[in-house]
Amino acid sequence: MRVGGGLAVFGIAAPAEGTFDPEDFDVASMQEIEEVEVEEQGLEYFTIQQARVVHDLTARIYPSDDNGPGAPEAGVVYFIDGQLNSAWGRGERWYMQGPFAGKDPTSPFEDDPDEPEDVDPETEVPWAEQNPSETQGWQYALTPNEAYDQAIWAIEEHTQSAYDADSFADLEADQQEEIVAALENGAVESFDRVDIDASGFFLLVRQNTLEGMFSDPMYGGNREMIGWRLKGFPGTPGALGSYRSLIEDDEYIELEEGDYRRLADDIDSLGIDGDNEVPANEQSEEGHAHVHDAAEADYPNVVDEAAARGETEIEATSIDLDDADDGGDQ
């Protein structure tokens, strides 16, 4: 759900306590941020020049600053590059049949042998003159990777005409910010020559930047869980992860290094203990007994075969498998 557009302006808040200490990170320290560069190695979709543009775009959207590392350190450009070389980037699960409003010729179905028989002539529309309503969602004739190709071209075109530079990636940060603001406002003229508008591309790259900051590191972004550490998100609970023993606590859990990706999991009982500190959930007495119970419980399954065949009338019963874990109600 979107919120309405109020105009109140908020100042920049101080960083949330404990969210960022450069010492915690095994990555470029803040002093070295300028040196984070795109390397050709490993690119799956972009050219090196395209990647430099996207790298800087995402760095403006989620910057490295006093609040901690941002898109460059998280490797967001590599995340997006990988996504564009996936089924998603190719739009394989999007409906991409024409005609496309604002693009395809008028009355595109006239000579179409597959035309449904019951076409009502009144519903035919001159597609090329038809602008989709904003409420109708994505109507560009583009998959995500095509959208990136065209938008990057348009951004470079705009840079060359409006700034004395060859590439967006060569601009100063404040100049890049001007362009990102213009993208958001749909005010970049060179986009008139491509099939996506500037604000549509802004929404796409903004969304992908957040995805690259905070998705599972297996997708190539959120390197070393930078995004999760920034946010104080303990990492996705692993298979059979649980917060049941913690969720009722009044106390807010200040995460420590050993907690990331471990808070919800009883690593010991799963037999994959590392050498990190003791996670918060193991510090409490009732913290983790359920994992043993879960390993014993083989559910869901049919435990009363006669009942499942509808052969018996049994009263609903509640079987508590894990007496050992009733500590959560304190």
């Binding site: 996705t236 917060y243 559910y299 049919v302 498998l321 894990d322």
Partner: peptide
């Protein structure tokens, strides 16, 4: 909220409050 066997004799597990329901399947059943 508890492990439960329904009138058809089918057993399900207990919610672990992991925060992954909508748009996800449940690995705990």
């Amino acid at each position: 909220t508890e492990s439960y066997t329904n009138p058809d004799g089918v057993q399900q597990g207990q919610c672990e409050y992991c925060g992954y329901c909508e748009r996800f399947g449940c690995e705990w059943g």
